[in-house]
Amino acid sequence: MRPVVDRTSDIRRPDILLFCTLRNERIRLPWFLDFYRKIGVNHFFFVDNDSGDGGREYLAEQPDVSLWTTKASYARSRFGVDWLNLLLRRHAHGHWALTVDVDEFLVYPFSDTRPLRALTDWLDTCAIRSLGAMMVDMYPKGRIADARYSEGQNPLEIASWFDGGNYQISRNPDLRNLWIQGGPRARMFFAADPWKAPALNKVPLVKWHRNYAYVSSTHMLLPRGLNQVYDGGGGEKASGCLLHAKFIDTFGEKTAEEASRQQHYGREYAAYDTEPVLWTRWSEQYVNWRQLEMLGLMSKGNWA
């Protein structure tokens, strides 16, 4: 991993940092940066995994981006976690750090009226170090292949549907996190062997300390206490959702590429057929965070 452009000296003490690893996602970058700038991310850290689509050059020009690049294997770096852990340890100590993929969009309580800093300030006040935000897979109404995305567009305009209540939850006693599966991927691709369905639980927002580390993607962390983003006593802790705008038109191409590389959780990609329609008559169309709250996918907790 070598630095392409390092602007970390611009970072001030209260800044909120975002960490992301990507490969050939050029077309998604403008909206992604725009979205997170708007909610108040101050500085972006990208690890580019040998992109050949101009994404690296595009990112290098952004004034609030620090960028690293590597040709190493994504799979052997435990899906990018090793790279990000290294950057987090070096640069995020004492900051709120948001770790997301380029197709994940964070929604949190009051995200339409309050910036991310309102949330992190409140979490600080309550001495809460981490916020859970489960992945919600978004999909279009028709065939995925027909959901054409153009640069700069809000991907949720195309992939605006989701499953409102078909998630399976169990507790992982080792790391104390909840293991959440389900949604359209389990329903469509993993009905025969549900235990293989991808994990949806994530802890993307953490007041970072140099001793922390993500274990498996952003599904869980060490120390274990950071995974305790749920209440076992009946109450609701505050939580958000990561709207996962994966199922849009680059999908077919991407799947073929990734599957051939056998890199990205290989089995999952092999399970997707080429022209799926994930939409059903029970699909919910995304409106705002309050809708997600009402459906019980996220919670305000005691933030009012």
Partner: peptide
């Protein structure tokens, strides 16, 4: 209402930030 949600939660809801132990389901 916010405090009630944090302390008692919505009955019958199991989700990412509310996963009550047995007998604490309310």
């Amino acid at each position: 209402k916010a405090v009630d949600r944090r302390v008692n939660g919505r009955p019958g809801l199991y989700m990412q930030s509310r996963f009550p132990d047995r007998e604490f389901e309310n």
